[in-house]
Design a protein around this nucleic acid. Structure first.
Lengths: 347, 347
DNA sequence: CTGTTAGCGCTTTCAC
DNA sequence: GTGAAAGCGCTAACAG
């Protein structure tokens, strides 16, 4: 059997309480005693049973996820993952809740963060908007000793404790690289559809994409970025116009969440010879991939992100270290052939 | 606070023991009583605290992983993941061990399975070799009521309880699809390097690859499969010969673990214009991807597989259902640009 | 058939 | 500074 606190207490000739104090690094133990206990711990090769510890603590950790509202399928997927995790979270003594705010709305986001602070939650995960109000709100959370993790879109320099999401520059590079290879020698310019340059992930993806495209053997024109605000109608008309005005268009990179409008415009125009690369695997993009309208989908696994955010916030709340390498979210490439069978999965 | 067994007992007017019997579906409860308890459970929306249950049971689940020995980096990676999981497994009351057997050796594998049965482990995960001895050993495990999961390479029809691994036909298709797109109109035949047709995953990958290649717009010759036994030297000489004899070779698909030999032969020959697609992200293949020698790496996440195998075996040992969709292992595509930063990661 | 009681490994008052 | 004892939510003997 694995050694327990009792074994340590016996071996060190102290009581359980003292062992616990040493284990949890609490004050009120003479350094000699502490040393004796630590020796016993080392000698026995003790490892704490976290489950039992949590049970005894019976502390709950209320965490709040702040997500953009609206019909952005990726965000709704994230929300679903939070709710799903909520079912299992009981065992982890975590209570999850979701707050939604208008997309790209810095003031609303800041307000939601303040509300969470007021509720004295033990952690906040939020899809950041790049604005000073938001940074200020995060700073207030920090002051209230509430850990904050940015989700999907980062806000470095805001003092957030952790970023949960993919390397968006690398994501853009990946898109550019695939686009270049898939197009090969085929001529024609490429269009880019973004949501808004006010979220950092979109800007970073663009940056990576341009870098990769310009590194390709064949030079290729990139049209000015179309900002569709992740809005289906606006995205639709921007792409429709582009298709009409640029007959020799070779490809489209959709780096935001305007896929519904994009796909509608493509369907209307009936152009299937384009190389199309989009982000986020949703019901729509999956169908488009299967039908051949889209050539590749770059994805960040919402389930992984949610679980990572929970682990990180809990660790921060407990003052435990985070294994950054372990919490890295990777970028998935999907083509028609490696689509996972189910609409959802978890590992 | 969440309802507990005590609340149920109160509400139903019975004792804890009876609640426990109902909860765990044990005999010895009148159906009227059972119904009353079940009503209370439903009314309170009770969900069991698994951690507490495990603590109380203090039962341990010894699981054994049987892996091919040798310097196959993917297999060593799997082994490392098992050991890594072993550290955290304590909390899950699981004790993990690894047994290694010669690669592609059906008799040795069967013997290892029998040894595990003799030790009365509560679950076995093994990389299957396609042979009747192995099927027979799995059948004996089944008879001893020990769940068996095949890992990486399946053995359907053997009565194994579960397969943990990717859809290898889809993996081959993905390789073919990428190979076709990356080559575009470039002429020349493609070579395939396998380990052995005695493991099902290799056969299935080949099948998928051939199907995808033949579905490409440009017809392309596929050379006869080279079987390198996942041996560096043999793989090296097979590829070296091929490079020498087929000057217009356009690409190579390495569907087994012969990558070290393949890469050595490519380095010696100095051919970097080939389209090379390999399986499994290891230190070697990662370096080759970064240097541009390899164009894409198809990967199955060893960490996910190990954790999935553990969950599945534990569930089977407890007679609990497995959510198949949740345990699906997906096929990762890596190109230079979306390589994860660390050598290892976990989600 | 049902209830009582004593833990699982750890934390936490509250005395000493 | 240190220790004794109660209890987290659940399970498992053993009585009745």
């Amino acid at each position: 059997m694995r050694p327990t606190v009792h074994d340590i207490a016996d071996k060190a000739g102290v009581s359980l309480a003292t062992v616990d104090r040493v284990l949890n690094d609490r004050p009120g133990v003479r350094s000699v005693t502490r040393a004796r206990v630590e020796a016993a711990i080392a000698a026995l090769g003790y490892v704490r049973d976290v489950a039992a510890a949590n049970l005894a603590k019976s502390r709950v950790y209320p965490l709040v996820f702040i997500l953009p509202e609206g019909d952005n399928p990726f965000m709704r997927g994230l929300e679903a993952e939070v709710r799903h995790a909520g079912l299992h979270s009981a065992a982890e003594r975590t209570r999850l809740s979701v707050a939604t705010v208008p997309a790209f709305d810095a003031a609303a986001l800041a307000k939601a963060i303040d509300a969470a602070i007021a509720e004295d939650v033990s952690g906040i995960a939020a899809v950041a908007v790049d604005a000073p109000e938001v940074s200020a709100a995060i700073a207030r959370a920090h002051e209230a000793d509430i850990p904050v993790a940015t989700l999907v879109s980062d806000l470095a320099g805001s003092g957030r404790d952790h970023f949960v999401g993919v390397d968006n520059i690398a994501a853009g590079r990946t898109a550019g690289s695939l686009m270049g290879r898939f197009l090969g020698g085929r001529p024609g310019p490429v269009a880019v559809l973004a949501g808004s340059m006010r979220v950092r992930d979109h800007g970073e993806r663009l940056e990576g994409f341009l870098a990769a495209m310009s590194a390709m053997p064949e030079a290729r024109a990139i049209l000015p970025v179309l900002e569709g605000q992740d809005d289906p109608e606006l995205s639709f008309s921007l792409i429709a116009d582009c298709l009409a005005n640029v007959p020799d268009l070779a490809g489209i990179y959709s780096l935001g969440a305007g896929n519904r409008g994009l796909l509608a415009a493509l369907a209307e125009r009936g152009r299937s010879d384009l190389c199309v690369i989009v982000h986020e695997l949703t019901g729509e993009t999956r169908a488009a991939l299967e039908s051949g309208v889209v050539d590749a989908v770059l994805n960040q696994d919402a389930g992984h992100e949610v679980r990572s955010a929970i682990r990180v916030l809990r660790a921060k709340a407990d003052g435990l270290p985070v294994n950054a390498a372990q919490e890295r979210i990777r970028l998935d490439i999907f083509i028609k052939d490696n689509l996972p069978a189910g609409p959802d999965e978890e590992n």
